[in-house]
Design a protein around this nucleic acid. Sequence first.
DNA 1: ATTAATCTTGACCATTTGGTCAGATTTTGA
DNA 2: TCAAAATCTGACCAAATGGTCAAGATTAAT
Lengths: 232, 232
Amino acid sequence: MTKSKTSANSNDGEGRIRKENMKKILQAAEKVFAANGFRGATTADIADEAGLPKANIHYYFGTKAKLYRTVIDDIVELWLSSFREISEDDDPASTLADYIRAKMELSQNRPEASRVFANELIRGAPRIKPYLSGDLKEWVDHKASIIDKWIEQGKIAPVDSRKLIFHIWAMTQTWADFEVQWSCILGNENGLQQSDYENATNAIITTVLRTCGLLPTPPRVTDIELPITTQL
Amino acid sequence: MTKSKTSANSNDGEGRIRKENMKKILQAAEKVFAANGFRGATTADIADEAGLPKANIHYYFGTKAKLYRTVIDDIVELWLSSFREISEDDDPASTLADYIRAKMELSQNRPEASRVFANELIRGAPRIKPYLSGDLKEWVDHKASIIDKWIEQGKIAPVDSRKLIFHIWAMTQTWADFEVQWSCILGNENGLQQSDYENATNAIITTVLRTCGLLPTPPRVTDIELPITTQL
DNA sequence: ATTAATCTTGACCATTTGGTCAGATTTTGA
DNA sequence: TCAAAATCTGACCAAATGGTCAAGATTAAT
């Protein structure tokens, strides 16, 4: 009735404390799960990383398994939502290049998310198989069908569309998952530089566009369709 | 002095029992470490997998860390030894194709080895950084220099040789590390088929050769050298 | 100011974990 | 055959782990 003083001087939401702490915990959890996998991560580590007592983690999330589940679900949502819709009328070259850039930005800005996911996959995806066979499969099927249409329309060279998608993922995610390997080999033990990501992005775009016959590169090239010739 | 009866009826080595058990344990350890990472793996799991009591594992390897170290070292040795030497006089197309095939065979036949390594890298490679910056960097530097010579000689199109190697690794190893993801998306929840590996191998070879301007594909192509054009 | 709801936290517990050990068993070598 | 060397293993331990809880502290709402 009486206009309560605040309740939200800037409407930053009900349960302010709750929201803030859950966020802190989720960020810490992503980091620790990325670095140790589900079994290797400890709630004590997560609590330390979040700067909260361990009991607090359980107050908000119940069990380690539920916390992990939340982290994974957030990542999946990020994954699926962060790429624009595409259609068969889009320009293949710029669409593919944009997609590769977006994935590389994720690798650079959210490497831990990528690693949590990688950990889960390496273990055989015990807790996300349904998602792989469901939403993710649908997503890939849909994108692949568009690529196939591009091929039919003679817009790009014949390629195995699903494998093209897989290999784009492999090349982009490797820069997050195995960052340490690439930085060591490039002679930078302290991590990759901005320029490394830029070069890598360009290299991947080049590879994918050449694969699709979209870059007038090595020897000159024009746009014709021809039978898929793969064997050496 | 007296010619001892056997000591090895078929010379399968001194310490037969020792050798056999260590092998059993190492195989079990590779599996368990691959599936759980170092911290997530338990010596009890490894013992079960090996069919031996836990104390036996410690009898042969001392600590979990030493066992892990041995597993990693074996994998590194396998890695570095399983590709033939190459020289600038070799034919680029067949050399690259052979290399990709060899890597894919490793992915198919020793997926757990690949996953142990992947686990280690995701964690920031705490125990193998020296190897990454040492032997592995040298290996890559050497191969990259040969690719660069091919470019100079006009045998292949201009490419970023190190990134080419990285991306070959990424594309080939993803079929071991993330097998479950690809099989789910391809609609085969029970794992990949022989034909999947074959198709993937061909897709990767195609991609790499097109990247290097070595496949007369999309639109027809002849073998000329031209300036590096990478930006979209 | 008061009270209900929310949040905080040290202490605690049962289970799991890496690792040890001493005594028993098997293998080896002459 | 027989003793030394190697192997085996159940029982055990201290530390770490996921999780609980009850009592206090803080915040929110009137």
